[in-house]
Design a protein around this nucleic acid. Structure first.
Lengths: 207, 207
DNA sequence: TTTTTCACCGATAGTACTATCGGTGAAACT
DNA sequence: AGTTTCACCGATAGTACTATCGGTGAAAAA
């Protein structure tokens, strides 16, 4: 190992990153109840009391983890979406399903944390998780609107939201099944998602 | 109030029921982290220490709540399924979606507890929740098989499971949206579920 | 009536955690 | 060089909870 002459601020930043990394690992393995200042600090190689050099309190670590999870997910989505642009047009439809799937599979721990927090009223991350899902649902609905599906009446828009909500839930569920090893072939998962969505989109066609 | 001359065992049973009822309320409102022996006991009107007259420890209460939740859900499903038998054949398909929806809406707190536990590794209810979902998925897949969809190859069976998994997720999501007030019309929810499933079932048809 | 049982109580030991405090040594200024 | 800063440490006060214990009075058994 090259002796790394870290400046003080660099060393501090490194420790903070270690705390965040340990926080994600513990959150994923043991849930929010298992995330204590002592455990994170120990996993990051510092004393429990030194935790407070980096975070005001336990709550602030959770907020930081939530923010970072959202940021990473957005970044992964963006990155993986770039590949879609290079694909042929016939593949575009399948890509619309494969991209979120890949984003989820890239960082399953973030995904699981969000899933858990969403239904946990004792979690400080609940609002964040609910908002993230709502934003994704709205994003998907907007994409469908851009594809030409009607949005004239309030009923139209609600239908669009329901379909978006459904597609989101399906993607989530299939990704979970894939991660658990039940659906090993990602292309087959895309097949199923495409089939489900074809039925729902037919509902949106006017007349 | 008629002075109720309860026998000792009747009084004990009543207290136990009060503890369970309080347990459900707290679990739904504050999550598993908020469910302490002190809070349940207080809500049931007894001292914290008296909690241990009825349960060996906190864990045993959670097990009891899990068992009872499963039992109640099964009972509700059975009850609501009886209505389907009286309906005309044209309505049978829609009933297949409406029945689980109504079962969920009848006891949303049990449903939310299960949803939360499923993704929480720190929850003693996790195994129970995961098994419940797996059982429901298998049940649905068996129903589809009975409807004549192919189950010859392992691939066929996996497809069937994926579709069942998807329908389950959609039902869950739509019920949640309905409970949150986003999809107030349950018949419209059924419309959307039918549309989604039509697409997926087309995938299962051989050829 | 007398005795036993037991659901409930208050008190408390034990545990696990949060957050604060004063001290320390090396890095970063002057 | 001397001085200051500060990331880290161990110790600890404070909090919230779990689970146990001996005591009490009314119901149940004798």
């Amino acid at each position: 190992m090259a002796g790394t002459p870290l400046s003080r601020s660099e060393a501090k930043e490194l420790t903070r990153r270690r705390l965040i990394r340990a926080g994600f690992a513990i959150l994923d393995a043991e849930g929010e109840a298992g995330l204590t200042t002592g455990k994170v600090a120990k996993a990051a190689g510092i004393a429990q009391s030194s935790f407070y050099v980096h975070f005001k309190d336990r709550h602030e670590l959770l907020r930081a983890l939530g923010d970072q999870a959202g940021e990473r997910l957005r970044a992964t989505m963006r990155e993986v979406r770039l590949k879609a642009h290079t694909a042929g047009d016939a593949e575009r439809h399948r890509d619309a399903f494969r991209i979120p799937l890949e984003a989820i599979c890239r960082h399953p721990e973030l995904f699981r944390i969000g899933l858990r927090a969403r239904h946990d009223p004792s979690s400080p991350l609940q609002d964040f998780a609910v908002q993230t899902v709502a934003a994704y649902r709205a994003h998907l609905a907007a994409d469908l609107a851009a594809m030409g599906f009607p949005t004239g009446t309030e009923g139209d828009r609600r239908r669009l939201e329901m379909v978006a909500d459904g597609i989101n839930a399906l993607t989530t569920t299939m990704a979970l099944g894939h991660l658990e090893g039940r659906y090993p072939d990602l292309e087959e998962v895309v097949d199923v998602l495409v089939a489900f969505s074809k039925g729902s989109l037919r509902l949106l066609i006017p007349g």
